[in-house]
Amino acid sequence: MASFPTLLYKELLRFWKVGFQTVAAPVLTALLYLVVFAYALEGRMRVYDQVSYAQFLVPGLVMMSVLQNAFANSSSSLIQSKITGNLVFMLLAPISYLEFFSAYVLASMIRGLVVGAGVLAVTVWFVELRVVAPLWVIAYALLGGAILGGLGLIAGIWADRFDQIAAFQNFVILPLTFLSGVFYSIRSLPEFWQQASRLNPFFYMIDGFRYGFFGISDVPPLASLAVVAVSFVLLSTACLLLLRSGYKLRQ
């Protein structure tokens, strides 16, 4: 793993240099969601008896930020390197596909976690929050970030243009995060949509993550963790196979 530290450093430096756009902006977005939804729906919506709607909302927003930013990091980095052509510098070097995968995914996780921590740090000024099971919080944040980092890598490998990444973001990532119960509990949905939500892996990430805060969830946290872990293994395998084949990266 000789190239891994540098590749990771490069990926971190890249998003850190434009931190205003990659960290500050998504934190602000999440804060706006909190203000608008919490005030508009406070009192009208109560998901769990012991938890106010604003409290319910915060972990969902944090996790949503982790997921979306992890995806944005690897996908935008790779597509930029492909389009500007500087991917060649990595392709010329003796970097194994495992190192490439690990560095991109880990950097994406870190970007997701930094933004997620930022959202949490800002929202605790407005909403009182406790964390009953921090290990669950950490486990779901790490796995969720890793899955979306890997998904971003796959999107970056597949796409030839920026707008294809944007389409992936708008038509896949955004609907899956919005329909995963960030803003509501799926138990408030009609039966059909409850079942449909259970097919969405993002639902388990949000639900399990929220369990870490309140000790309550729609699905037992261990079952969610199993779904999330299996998703991670499948997705990583797919990604590693793509990288090994050189698909769309080496002619």
């Binding site: 190239s3 540098t6 590749l7 450093y9 490069k10 510098f89 070097a93 970097i95």
Partner: peptide, 8 residues
């Protein structure tokens, strides 16, 4: 520096 690092 980054290019060097790619070669370990």
């Amino acid at each position: 520096r980054i290019q060097s690092g790619y070669y370990g």
